[in-house]
């Protein structure tokens, strides 16, 4: 089994998102469900440069029915969008699944779509690439690796969704500050004292909040303690 990463020109629903007036850093297809007819229900994550509103986005994207927009708890200006779109607006996703490849990530950024997918073997890679080139023009292979299985489709942002509402604002603030300052890097780029000072809290408060965050992560992964 091969996991491949490739790049094509921005297209479909993600390219439409990049046409809105508000600056957008990146957008990703998290999930897709078929709808009767030629429509598809898409679950997207989009990182904007500033705050956006449902009405404003709907005005600028008249061809796409925005069902719901939720602002993420964990990252500023990241929004989860549920939209009803024409299946042609997710053509790369359709091409992958029609060719029995498993899409793992479809990310729009800097005028390109970066796609990670699993294919069976070299011949399968050629079939998939040929079908995508026929529809989208050129394709640039970025990287590949061998894997044991096909893995799970899309949904790399699931953990973010799952954590939504499971951490308090204080815990999120501590976690994000520690992460941004390099506390979790090896070697550490900052000490606990420096983070506590940045947040104007005591070191013991910082430690307690970080432990609660870790506890919540573990509860999500392993379920309740026995």
């Amino acid at each position: 089994m091969l996991r491949i990463e490739f790049r094509i020109d921005l297209a479909g629903v993600l390219s439409r998102l990049f046409t809105v007036d508000e600056r957008i850093e990146s957008a990703e297809i998290d999930n897709a469900l078929p709808v009767a007819g030629d429509s598809v229900f898409l679950f997207l994550s989009a990182q904007f440069g500033s705050s956006i509103s449902d009405e404003r986005l709907s005005e600028q994207l008249p061809d796409i029915r925005i069902v719901d927009i939720t602002q993420a708890d964990v990252a500023q200006h990241t929004y989860y969008l549920r939209v009803l779109a024409d299946v042609s607006d997710a053509s790369v996703l359709s091409l992958l699944t029609e060719n029995l490849a498993i899409p793992h990530r479809i990310v729009g950024k800097d005028a390109t779509l970066d796609i990670v997918a699993s294919v069976r073997d070299w011949n399968h890679l050629k079939e998939v690439a040929s079908s995508i080139e026929a529809e989208h023009g050129s394709l640039e292979l970025i990287g590949t690796t061998q894997t044991e299985g096909m893995g799970f489709p899309l949904g790399s942002n699931k953990i973010k969704h799952s954590m939504s509402g499971k951490l308090s604002e204080e815990q999120l603030e501590v976690l994000e500050t520690a992460y941004q300052m390099g506390y979790f890097k090896v070697p550490q780029e900052v000490t606990a004292e420096e983070i506590a000072s940045e947040l104007d809290i005591s070191r013991s408060t910082l430690s307690a909040r970080l432990r609660r965050v870790e506890h919540n992560f573990c509860a999500l992964l392993f379920g309740p303690q026995e």
Partner: peptide
Amino acid sequence: TLTGKVQI
């Protein structure tokens, strides 16, 4: 690549 894939 950053994710450890062999660059092509």
